[in-house]
Simulated scan of single mutants.
Amino acid sequence: MIARVALRDRTAFSALYDATSAKLFGVCLRVLNNRSEAEEVLQEVYIRIWHKADSYAVTGHSPMTWLITVARNLAIDRLRQRKAPMRDIDDVVDLADDRPGPETVAMARSEQAQVVACMNELPADRADAVRRVYLGGETYTELADRYGVPLNTMRTWLRRSLQKLKECLTR
């Protein structure tokens, strides 16, 4: 039938379509997982077969293998088009700098200096406890054991230290 299609035999083409369309549609559907796209690709497959039937060469493989290969390749091409749409160069290369600007850096340094100054106003053991619990992740119990004070005393230290830091930072 493929040889007759190469000679532009419409009857042979119709017979080829009837004999193979279900199988080739299944190949397209399996690759694309979308019925309408599979139908469109199947149409492209038969257009390709009509135009390229003369390029089919008997190589020991069945003619159906050639037809399936045509269908599979066109379906994969469609899948690639779907996954990788053309993008503008501005979309591909992001030239924006996400790093903070000089003003933000200066403000952060100023705030950092203010926090350090306020921490220095606390007694050394209280400042150390605040650092350990909020920056180091130690628990209140671990801090109470470290400083040899009851758990409720450690809670009071931390609460009062945070209040003093808040007052200092609002000055």
Rank of each mutant, 00 (worst) to 15 (best):
M1E: 02
A3E: 14
V5E: 01
V5I: 13
A6V: 05
R8H: 07
D9A: 03
D9P: 00
R10C: 10
T11I: 03
A15S: 05
A15H: 02
L16E: 04
Y17Q: 08
Y17A: 04
T20N: 11
S21T: 05
S21V: 07
K23C: 13
K23H: 04
F25G: 02
G26V: 03
V27W: 02
V27R: 01
L29T: 06
L32T: 14
N33Q: 10
N33R: 12
N33D: 14
N34V: 12
R35H: 15
R35F: 12
R35Y: 10
S36L: 15
S36N: 10
S36T: 14
A38H: 02
E40I: 06
E40V: 13
V41R: 02
L42Q: 06
Q43G: 13
E44F: 13
E44A: 13
V45I: 11
Y46S: 09
R48P: 00
R48C: 08
R48W: 10
W50S: 08
H51S: 05
S55Q: 09
S55V: 11
S55F: 02
Y56L: 08
Y56I: 07
A57C: 06
V58N: 15
T59E: 08
G60R: 14
S62F: 09
P63Y: 01
P63F: 00
M64P: 00
L67S: 08
V70Q: 01
N73V: 02
D77M: 14
L79C: 15
L79V: 09
R80Q: 13
R80I: 04
K83E: 13
K83T: 06
K83M: 04
A84F: 14
A84G: 03
A84Y: 14
A84P: 01
P85K: 02
M86R: 09
M86S: 08
M86E: 13
I89T: 13
I89E: 09
I89W: 01
D91W: 03
V92G: 02
D94N: 15
L95F: 11
L95Y: 05
A96R: 12
D98Q: 12
D98F: 07
D98Y: 12
R99Y: 14
R99L: 15
P102W: 04
V105T: 12
A106M: 15
A108S: 15
A108W: 10
R109P: 01
R109S: 10
S110D: 12
Q114W: 08
V115N: 03
V115K: 07
A117T: 09
N120G: 01
E121N: 02
L122F: 11
A124S: 14
R126D: 06
A127W: 00
A127I: 00
V130Q: 03
V130N: 06
V130G: 08
R131G: 09
V133P: 00
Y134T: 13
Y134C: 12
L135Q: 08
G136H: 13
Y140K: 03
Y140F: 06
E142S: 10
E142H: 07
E142P: 00
E142F: 00
A144D: 03
A144R: 00
D145Q: 09
P150H: 11
L151T: 09
L151R: 14
N152A: 07
T153V: 12
R155W: 07
R155S: 11
T156H: 08
T156M: 07
W157Y: 12
L158C: 11
R160C: 11
R160A: 08
S161D: 07
L162Y: 04
Q163A: 07
K164T: 10
L165I: 04
K166L: 03
C168V: 02
C168A: 02
L169Y: 02
L169I: 11
R171Y: 05
